[in-house]
Design a protein around this nucleic acid. Structure first.
Lengths: 213, 213
DNA sequence: TAGATTGTTAATCGATTAACAATC
DNA sequence: TAGATTGTTAATCGATTAACAATC
């Protein structure tokens, strides 16, 4: 039973590292490891032992002196913190190349989500099946949201329409945006979270690095 | 003509912000804006004016007192720094859902790259056309690399094979990895750059944020 | 010239690392 | 018990912000 020394507010730098901890620990578990010290984990993850202990202690005393961390427990705890056992309903807007790939490729359940509806403005796509869901026309989005109340919207649409659709979805109760639209959407409501994903940015970083040599 | 007060080494925090500057400035240019002050740009990008001036000054004095920044010049300069006018050859390994979407959806030229070959281990996919390129069998990868010397490899393959293929590609001269394989590949050569992209991580962050409410 | 706004130095803030007493 | 390793406090480091003289 971990000491519940939780920090009242945890910095974003720590939060951003949690998914990576979760992945590495999950992998170690699969390999049959049952415990690890902060030092050994630091080595595997290219971090410092100090940082790992600091990070984990933001949420509670998950370790044990002289022993280290029980990986089963730690995995479960971090999973709970991240909410991977939730099933937040998500709608995907835009069934183009990227939208379809996200729908088909991502194991939503693994990340605390459930894909509940796919929408596209192209009537030619209506009725096609993607990831076992029928593509619905965008005109049905409003009714769908009123009925299903999805909390997450995944935007795989052109930059030009992104902000407009995001604003509508806010009015329909969406609380989180996973935005692939190449445009940083801006939501003024402060209780709504936005992840602007820019795949091009990380590709540019590679070009930059290659230029430096 | 900017004063060339370049810093000898620029911190990673700054580099990571460059693509976003590039995007915002590009957008302003499209809207017909020709100059902007650090204060106005800061407002648009939700940064501080101080930070913008500090960031840009790592690379040179691109502004002018009393005037601000010329957007055409600034866009060109940042583009050059990032290397968006290069055409680094890239190979894509893995023509599944995600691989195909990346191939079809990304405008590589915009990011300083050129997609030169697509490979998959599934012989059933050989010869299919993706993004105007024929899918080649993985057995041809070695010859291809010796002939074309791609500098970038894009990994859209299962986690289990990621590290192994990455190691082979290092031996074939690849200098940069854009890795979507759900596994953090580790390359010991210090002149080789790796961008481990974990789409699930940002989705988990949304689940986390929703849990907090 | 006067006003605006940069480039740059100094001050502050936050995040990482080091150290070690507590404790399993 | 002795050894190992945590939780936690203090020291360091780096990044952001503030301030202002330089200058267009």
């Amino acid at each position: 039973m971990p000491k519940e020394t939780k920090k009242s507010v945890v910095s974003n730098s720590v939060i951003k590292r949690l998914p990576r901890y979760y992945r590495f620990i999950g992998e170690l578990l699969k390999q049959g490891t049952i415990r690890i010290s902060s030092e050994k984990l630091a080595e595997k993850m290219s971090l410092t032992a100090s940082q790992i202990r600091q990070d984990l202690n933001c949420f509670g005393g998950f370790g044990q002196q002289g022993y280290g961390y029980n990986l089963t427990e730690l995995h479960k705890e971090i999973g709970n913190i991240l909410g991977v056992h939730e099933a937040h309903k998500a709608v995907l807007i835009g069934a183009g190349n990227l939208g379809r790939a996200i729908a088909a490729h991502m194991d939503f359940a693994e990340y605390g989500c459930r894909l509940a509806g796919i929408f596209d403005s192209d009537t030619g796509k209506t009725g096609e099946t993607v990831a076992e869901l029928p593509v619905l026309n965008i005109s049905e989005l409003e009714n769908f949201c009123r009925r299903e109340s999805p909390q997450i919207a995944i935007l795989c649409i052109p930059r030009a329409s992104a902000q407009h659709i995001a604003d509508s979805l806010v009015n329909l109760g969406v609380k989180a945006f996973w935005n692939f639209s190449h445009y940083d959407i801006k939501i003024s409501h402060k209780d709504i979270v936005v992840e602007n994903v820019h795949l091009g940015d990380s590709l540019m970083m590679l070009s930059y690095a290659l230029k430096q040599g």
